[in-house]
C-alpha cells in the first residue's frame, strides 16, 4: 500500500513543494503582521499560534520533521498556552485594549526590519553553499539524524543547556516567591502558603 507511493509522483510534484512553501510563508507573514498590529491582546496571541503553526509547516516542507513537531509542541503547545495563561491571569478584556499600544510603532518597525535583515543576511551567508535535498526522501529518520549529530558533536552545549534550564527554573521560583512576599495574604484569611518555609 505504502510502497506503491514510491512509484507514483505523489500528490505534490517537486515544484509543488516549493509553491506550497511560498504560499505558507506568505500566510505566516500575514499572520505575524496581524499579530503585532491587532488591538486585541488575546487575538494577538491566537494569531501568533497561526504564525508559529505556519513556521512548523515550513519546517515540515524542508523535511525537518522533528524540528517541526518540536515547534508545535513547545511553541504552540506550551509557550502560547503560557502566554494566554498569563494574559488571563492578569487582564485580557474582550474587545480593544487601547492601553496596549505603546506608541512606539515606528521604532518597533525599524528594529524589526533591522533584525530581519540581519538574520536573513547571517543565515544566507552561513549556509550559502549548503543545500538540503528535499526531493530525495531524506525524511527517513530525521529524528535519528538529529539525535546522532546532537550526541556526537554537540554534547557539551547540550549539558550546558541543562545548567541554563536549571538556572531559569531556580530564577523563576525565586522571582515568584519574592513577589509573593509583597502580596497581601489570601482574602479568605488563611495563611498564605507561599510564606510557609522561609
Amino acid at each position: 500500500m505504502i510502497h506503491s507511493a514510491t512509484h507514483h509522483p505523489g500528490f505534490l510534484s517537486p515544484t509543488g513543494v516549493e509553491i506550497t512553501f511560498l504560499l505558507v510563508g506568505l500566510a505566516t507573514l500575514g499572520a505575524a503582521v496581524v499579530t503585532v498590529t491587532t488591538r486585541q491582546l488575546v487575538h494577538a496571541a491566537l494569531w501568533l499560534v497561526v504564525a508559529l503553526g505556519g513556521i512548523a509547516v515550513e519546517y515540515l516542507l524542508l523535511t525537518a520533521e522533528f524540528i517541526a513537531w518540536v515547534q508545535v509542541l513547545i511553541y504552540v503547545g506550551s509557550v502560547v498556552v503560557l502566554l494566554l495563561f498569563g494574559l488571563m491571569l492578569t487582564k485580557a478584556p474582550i474587545g480593544h485594549s487601547p492601553d496596549a499600544d505603546s506608541e512606539n510603532r515606528w521604532v518597533a518597525l525599524a528594529v524589526a526590519l533591522a533584525a530581519a535583515g540581519t538574520l536573513v543576511w547571517v543565515v544566507a551567508d552561513a549556509f550559502r553553499s549548503t543545500w538540503i535535498d528535499v526531493h530525495h526522501g531524506t525524511g527517513q529518520s530525521a529524528t535519528k539524524v538529529t539525535g546522532s549529530s546532537l550526541f556526537r558533536f554537540w554534547v557539551l552545549p547540550f549539558e550546558a543547556l541543562s545548567v541554563l534550564l536549571l538556572a531559569a527554573l531556580v530564577g523563576a521560583i525565586v522571582l515568584s516567591r519574592r513577589r509573593a512576599d509583597v502580596l497581601p495574604p489570601a482574602p479568605d484569611g488563611s495563611t498564605a502558603p507561599h510564606g510557609k518555609d522561609r
Partner: peptide
C-alpha cells in the same frame, strides 16, 4: 498567581523532555 510557577516549570521541563526523543532513537 500560584498557577504561574507551574507554567514556568512546565516550559523548562518540556524543553528538557524533547531532547529525550532524539536521544532515545
Amino acid at each position: 498567581i500560584r498557577y504561574y510557577v507551574y507554567a514556568f516549570l512546565y516550559v523548562i521541563f518540556a524543553v528538557d523532555a524533547i531532547f529525550l526523543f532524539p536521544w532515545a532513537t
